[in-house]
Simulated assay, not measured.
Amino acid sequence: MLNGTAGKLYGGAAYRHFSSAAFTRINDDASSDDANLWSVGAGYKFDRNWDLSGAYAKNTEADTNATAHNIQLNYKGAQKANKGSWGAYTAYRYMGQNVAFAPLYEMFLTDSGMNNVKGWEVGAEYIPFTNVMSKIQYFNGKKLDSDRDAEGLFGQVNFFF
Rank of each mutant, 00 (worst) to 15 (best):
S19K: 15
S20K: 07
S20V: 06
S20C: 08
A21K: 15
A22Q: 09
F23H: 06
F23L: 09
T24C: 04
T24H: 10
R25H: 12
R25S: 14
I26Y: 11
D28L: 09
D29L: 06
A30P: 03
A30D: 12
S31N: 12
D33N: 14
D33H: 06
D33L: 01
D33G: 06
D34V: 02
D34I: 02
D34E: 13
A35W: 01
A35M: 11
N36S: 13
L37D: 02
L37P: 00
W38G: 11
W38C: 04
W38N: 13
S39V: 04
V40C: 01
A42F: 08
A42I: 06
A42Q: 01
G43L: 06
G43K: 03
G43N: 05
G43I: 06
Y44I: 05
Y44D: 00
Y44S: 04
F46T: 02
F46E: 03
D47P: 04
R48D: 14
R48Y: 11
N49S: 10
W50Y: 14
D51I: 04
L52Y: 07
L52E: 02
S53A: 14
S53F: 04
S53I: 03
G54V: 05
G54Y: 05
A55M: 13
Y56E: 07
K58T: 13
N59F: 01
N59R: 01
N59G: 03
T60I: 14
E61V: 09
E61P: 08
E61W: 05
E61N: 15
A62S: 13
A62D: 09
D63H: 13
T64M: 10
T64P: 14
N65K: 09
T67V: 11
H69P: 02
H69D: 11
H69G: 08
N70Y: 12
N70C: 05
N70W: 06
I71K: 02
I71D: 02
L73E: 04
N74K: 15
Y75F: 12
K76T: 08
K76D: 05
K76Y: 06
K76V: 01
G77P: 03
G77K: 00
Q79E: 12
Q79T: 08
Q79H: 05
Q79P: 00
Q79I: 09
Q79G: 04
Q79W: 00
K80R: 11
A81Q: 09
A81V: 06
N82I: 08
K83C: 07
K83F: 00
S85P: 10
G87D: 02
G87Q: 02
A88K: 03
